[in-house]
Simulated assay, not measured.
Amino acid sequence: MIRINKNESPIRALTDEEIAEIAVATRFQEYTDDAIDRLTEAYAAFHGEDPALIAFANGSDEWIQKCTILLGDGPILMLEPDFVMYEEYAAQFQREIIKVPCRADYSFDYEQVYAVIEKEKPSYFIVSQPNNPLGGLHPAAFIQKTADLLAQYGGYLILDEAYMDFVDNPPARPVGDHVILLRTLSKIYGLAGLRIGIASSTEKTMQLLNSIAHPYPLNTLSLSIAAFLLEHPERLRAFMADQRRLSAKLKKIFNEEVGAILSVLPSETNFVFTYGELAPALGQWIIDHGYQPRTYEKSGIPCIEKAVRYSIATDEQLDALAEIIREWREQL
């Protein structure tokens, strides 16, 4: 099966020869002090940020878990649907979770979110920006207002920007001790298997998050591969541009081939979210023809049980997928 269900990169950013060279040069017998410093400097330089305000962990999941441990003991607020692990980690630590559901058209009532914050005063509001699994970008004004409301009583806003690198014009984001930014090298960087998650905030908040940090949060080989990639910025930008091109191609296929007969949500990510009466049938047809999209019939989330999400693949795989979709359309 061709995997188009995990929002991964379909290609690697480095050649076999480069990976072999990095592996040979990596000093596995030593702890990772120098390697983590190297990655921190490389990531900060690539993004034009202060390396003192950046920290790494074993994927964004570890940062989500740490936030669940450290940030208050009140309820946690999230949207529904959103990244499922927010609720999973809340359950691990018996934290109350409050969910604001989407409308039937998968838009959100932002006024309802404001009202819940003012009434329930959650310890933090965590939100993927753009949304996973829907793919849309929340308005900057909404993000700013939630940050302002949370700041009034000491709550936190956690922005999970796993897919922000796919956005053509990233919006401004709020800043302050109460704002935490989570990012990852799993998506547009093509390093999902290395499990590298990034957190950034102010000095005060990073000290809090790092108060339960592991002394060596990532293995040496992961650090070396990621640092090498970031130390070649022009090449990395070209790789990222190609990921965006594949994303545009995926969206074009679904909008042109089936946009008239089922709903395809606008997406600022490397995936498309489809829904409607025919969406499950198309999803099953595609599964029967060798591709594995993300289905939600067993998700326990009623609003997406009949939806199907598809992520990018190689050019050849996307061309074949387009033909499979056309064949399905013709037999209706």
Results as ranks from 00 to 15, higher is better:
228 F>S: 01
220 T>P: 09
261 I>V: 15
265 L>A: 13
291 Y>Q: 13
215 P>Y: 03
205 T>W: 03
242 D>C: 00
235 R>Q: 15
225 I>Y: 14
230 L>A: 08
258 V>F: 03
230 L>G: 09
270 N>H: 12
267 S>C: 00
229 L>N: 05
210 N>T: 03
261 I>G: 07
264 V>H: 00
219 N>E: 10
240 M>N: 06
288 D>W: 01
263 S>R: 11
238 A>I: 01
228 F>W: 14
199 A>F: 04
265 L>F: 00
238 A>C: 02
285 W>S: 06
249 K>Y: 15
281 A>I: 08
253 I>R: 05
271 F>E: 10
219 N>P: 01
268 E>W: 01
235 R>M: 13
224 S>G: 06
248 A>T: 07
262 L>W: 10
251 K>L: 12
208 L>T: 09
271 F>P: 13
279 A>V: 04
250 L>V: 05
225 I>H: 11
293 P>Y: 06
272 V>R: 02
289 H>V: 14
219 N>C: 06
211 S>V: 07
243 Q>D: 14
251 K>E: 15
235 R>V: 13
203 E>M: 08
259 G>A: 04
269 T>Q: 00
285 W>D: 07
268 E>H: 15
233 P>N: 04
239 F>M: 07
291 Y>R: 02
271 F>M: 15
218 L>P: 06
212 I>W: 07
222 S>D: 02
235 R>G: 06
249 K>S: 06
227 A>K: 12
234 E>D: 14
296 Y>D: 03
230 L>C: 06
235 R>D: 07
267 S>G: 04
280 P>E: 02
296 Y>N: 06
235 R>P: 05
265 L>I: 04
258 V>P: 06
286 I>A: 08
288 D>G: 09
215 P>V: 08
264 V>P: 00
235 R>I: 10
291 Y>N: 04
261 I>D: 11
203 E>L: 14
221 L>A: 04
246 L>D: 13
238 A>L: 15
282 L>K: 12
226 A>W: 00
214 H>C: 11
225 I>A: 09
260 A>R: 01
211 S>H: 10
211 S>P: 11
243 Q>K: 04
290 G>K: 12
278 L>I: 00
286 I>P: 02
225 I>W: 12
230 L>D: 04
282 L>Y: 05
222 S>L: 03
213 A>E: 05
214 H>M: 12
286 I>Y: 03
291 Y>W: 07
250 L>F: 03
278 L>W: 02
259 G>R: 04
220 T>L: 08
264 V>L: 05
262 L>M: 14
281 A>E: 15
264 V>A: 07
259 G>C: 08
268 E>V: 01
287 I>E: 12
244 R>L: 03
202 T>Q: 05
